[in-house]
Design a protein around this nucleic acid. Structure first.
Length: 198
DNA sequence: TCTTCGATTGTCT
DNA sequence: GACAATCGAAGAA
């Protein structure tokens, strides 16, 4: 079952928390490749000094200012693609970075995309999962609520609060407080995903 | 136009 | 644990 757009039209931290356990699906030559989302981070508006929208709207971050439920995908470090889900009210620049997934469908495709890498390291990082699912900038602004889209998110499993850990966001440099310490990173620990990437 | 640096990863020590 | 890879966006000049 596809997640409705209203799922994303809420406070971005709530969306980030509830995205854990949902199923990220990519249609690959007619075949499904999918994974359960097990780690995410929230980026909340222009006042958030770690968010790409901190300097206002630009060509790069325009997707964040669009409709909730769309993808915001950008290129960084000269070689990595990152996948985000635009959240909050339409027009408000907030997004959830998908940091890790647990492969459940199309494992052969993911294996091919991650050849030479150990299974537990296939999707345990934001740039790793985009490589595993062959997600690139051409998917930017794609609608994650459209069943005809090659990239979308479905209902999955529910993690209990005691299975979810929150920590400050990581990898953000030169970010002043209080933004640096906001506990806006969400990680799922569950028997259902034990033995994998965390 | 020039400079800095990044929501990271993989490799080497 | 340290660091190179690699390039485009953003900000300064």
């Amino acid at each position: 079952m596809l997640l409705p757009r209203d799922f994303y039209r809420r406070q971005v931290q709530t969306v980030a928390r509830e995205l854990l356990g949902k199923r990220l699906v990519q249609i690959f030559d007619g075949q499904r490749a999918a994974g359960i989302i097990i780690e995410s981070e929230a980026y909340d508006g222009e006042q958030d000094q770690a968010c790409h929208a901190r300097s206002g709207k630009t060509a790069r971050n325009a997707a964040m200012y669009g409709e909730a439920g769309r993808a915001y995908i950008y290129f960084t470090y000269g070689m990595h693609w990152m996948l985000n889900c635009v959240s909050g009210e339409d027009g408000y620049p907030a997004a959830v970075l998908i940091r890790a997934i647990h492969p459940v469908e199309g494992v052969n495709i993911i294996q091919e995309n991650r050849s030479g890498v150990e299974r537990k390291n296939w999707c345990d990082g934001p740039a790793k999962l985009t490589k595993a699912l062959a997600i690139t900038g051409e998917f930017n602004e794609f609608d994650l609520c459209d069943p005809n889209s090659p990239l979308f998110i479905e209902e999955g499993i529910a993690f209990k609060d005691e299975e979810v850990q929150t920590t400050p966001r990581i990898g953000i440099q030169n970010t002043p407080e209080p933004w640096l310490s906001q506990p806006w990173r969400f990680i799922a620990h569950s028997p259902l995903v034990s033995g994998d990437s965390l």
